[in-house]
Design a protein around this nucleic acid. Structure first.
Lengths: 199, 199, 199, 199
DNA sequence: ACATAAACGAGACGGTACGTCAGGTCTTTCA
DNA sequence: TGAAAGACCTGACGTACCGTCTCGTTTATGT
């Protein structure tokens, strides 16, 4: 059992940590995830390989931390609530669609989603840390609408949110279709038709 | 430009091709995609490495062909049409949910989905060859229902199919939730509510 | 035991044989012996690999035949005999020294000498076919001189010839010294001093 | 230009270096030079291939170092000088002839001589490091004899040494004749006849 | 003149080794 | 004593050739 003696985190070099994050994100954008290497990160960050191995178990873990530290600055503050649910959803999803075209986001996000598909441990962290918070704001917004009587009380809002978000992220991840505003609008409309109170 | 002269496909050894497929599928199940190697496949198949490199550009391509050749025997024959759309969808999706638990399918499917996320070329083939046919049968079934007046004529059936399938595959791929029969039933109900003709 | 059924030499393609020789000699000059390959020879000669394997056991054997066929046109006709042994030897050795600078000779000759060092079978053929005839003319000339009373009757003319030729070829093969005319002259003089009849 | 950054020789593993030498010498004796491979040496030495490639450019260079490190322990200490030059030379050359029959010496020596024939760079090192010291002791002994008046003052002792050594090594390398004691004796006698002062 | 059998060109095949790259471990040196 | 540097063993990469083995296609008799 005797694991390796955990390093003393309090003595850790913040400088190196930052440099490693920057290098990892820059490199994954430049060369792609498959050609991203620990050696490459260490070299770019001006850091010894051991400094990476001391704190992370794999390149996926490094990238997850690096990307997480960037994303979390984005500090989710919930969806707008103008009273018009459909309009609110369209607004936010359209913006998200545009955002997903940004190359700086594509590479690490795709990489982590892909790595997660083959690595259960990693996917738990990825989902819990990066995807779940984003999903939750939709769930919350739907629940609020449900409580306001805009949605049928029998509806499962979690599944409702998935009907909205999964087609969206699936199209992006697998490149099965474009993320046009028209697609977003139709999607929102068809989903909401199913969630509204019956006549 | 001058590419290497394409090998003569008519002289190709069917024996080797089969052995490579078998080896690739067996190994991806045993050791996982990341530890799947061309050398390993060649050794297991009793084949020279060059014989793999001669016909495929990467391990992903080998696996895609191998998995494809298995899947295509399944010869999709369309969804059942008992007249009860909801029941038909539930039946098929429940069966699919069970099927996706099969370890022999999990490994190659996850591997290809993940590899596709980082490789546009590959994902086009993966989607076109393996995912699209599966999606199409749903689209066709929905269109048939639409023409029969069971669904609203204004509905986009393609997006309707995605509302059904994407939450399903997303849960499976990212492990964001279980694929229980209860989930399937609720999903089908909520989706169909949105697609039926308005009162 | 049953060896492979010997091919029918009478049906052999002279055209291919020539093309193989030309290709082998050209390539050994261009890329050196180590990078000389059967595939390369076959490709350059516009010949199938099997045609080479059918008639020769190794690249060394090909080269030996190729070089041999060229050398044997040179048809040794014995050393000149002007009556002045020292002068005759100097004349011929000077000419040989100049000849050995020719790049077209260097590559195959060096290659075969080297290959022979590690392959007893090959070296027997190389020596017997290419070196021995050259040595013999010196032995013959010395013996003639011995019979004419110019050399001591007790002398071993074979070893006498080696005293003359080995320093020469050793310098060339191992690059241990230059093959200047001055060297040749001194060598001949010092050797003959030892072979002449005692005062 | 920018070559790869030279490795830090001070951190080099002496243990690995030794193991590589031992493996190379053992293998060249067992399988011969042509079938000697870097992979084989690495495996036998229990060393990574890269550790070989880091410090040597080719198998020939490894073997040269390995053989050199063995030979140099032999620490040449000059030829005996009993006052009888012919006897001294016969004694040493007879011993050398016997030594050259030792299989442990044959393989690496032949291999290096052969490799040197095709690689100028290598042959310079081979000759300078392994052959020249051996030649020099003969040259020195001859010069001493010359100064003592036993040899003609006009003689070129370098060429004299070559008259002695080249027939000897040529016979061995190309297998053109046996290295019997009788041969050695005759050779020494005929050579010295040519080098002694004229009547 | 034609049948037939061998040599031929081509090149796919199972292999071995190449020389390179990166993984993860370990040791040395420095601040 | 954490971190930089980087040598080390390991193992896979993708390539080059090996020597063997079909494939049609010449070609060259021998009936």
């Amino acid at each position: 059992m005797a694991n390796k003696p955990a390093p003393d985190a309090s003595r850790r070099s913040e400088r190196s940590r930052r440099a490693i994050f920057d290098a990892a994100l820059a490199l994954v954008g430049e060369v792609g995830y498959d050609k991203l290497t620990i050696e490459g990160i260490a070299a770019r960050a001006g850091v010894g390989k051991q400094t990476i191995y001391r704190w992370w178990p794999s390149k996926a873990a490094v990238l997850l931390d690096a990307f997480g530290s960037v994303v979390e600055e984005y500090d989710q503050e919930g969806l707008p609530d103008t009273g018009d649910l459909a309009a609110d959803l369209k607004t936010v999803l359209r913006a998200t669609a545009d955002e997903f075209d940004d190359a700086a986001w594509q590479a690490p996000y795709r990489a982590l989603a892909a790595a997660g598909a083959n690595d259960e441990e990693l996917s738990r962290t990825f989902v819990g840390r990066l995807m779940e918070p984003g999903t939750r704001v939709y769930v919350d917004r739907l629940r609020a609408a449900q409580e306001a009587g805009e949605l049928d009380p029998d509806i499962d809002v979690r599944i409702g949110a998935e009907m909205l978000l999964s087609p969206f992220s699936q199209r992006w991840l697998m490149r099965t279709g474009e993320l046009s505003h028209a697609f977003v609008d139709t999607l929102v409309d068809q989903v909401l038709r199913g969630l509204r109170p019956r006549a």
